[in-house]
Amino acid sequence: MRHILSILLENEAGALSRVVGLFSARAYNIDSLTVSTTEDATLSRMTIVTHGSDEVIEQITKQLNKLIEVVKVIDLNESEHIEREMMLIKVRATGKDREEMKRMADIFRGRIIDVTEKTYTIELTGTSDKLGAFIEAIDRAVILETVRTGASGIGRGERVLKI
């Protein structure tokens, strides 16, 4: 099953590679990984999307917690949460496709952020599923390039991940 893990870790050189190394060394899956500093400059927050059985997810959480630089780990799936990912997608937009592309972007609440005579670059935000759905919805042949940030997640309501 797909899980979103949120990790607070020391904002130190090498901390990221410890996390990534752990996943490869123990043959865990990484579907996506995103990391950046938080409002506290000494801390980074990482969101890892992974999948595995409950036992595997439990081991991943324990192994992450074992890393000295990891301050806290939560599995967002354990309660209500919000997930967002951003995608920039460059598509061919000529002839009749141009109008269709604009319509599709609108339907998915995307924004066209760069325009040339032949292309649109669309910014799209949502759950990973939604971004996937957009790619499915348009003609594969018009896709020139895609770049996705990977999912970020946060708990709903007053639940916070803090030290």
């Binding site: 036992e55 439990e58 081991q59 324990k62 192994q63 917690n65 074992k66």
Partner: peptide, 8 residues
Amino acid sequence: VDPSSISK
């Protein structure tokens, strides 16, 4: 002492 050793 190591939680990751348990139920591994």
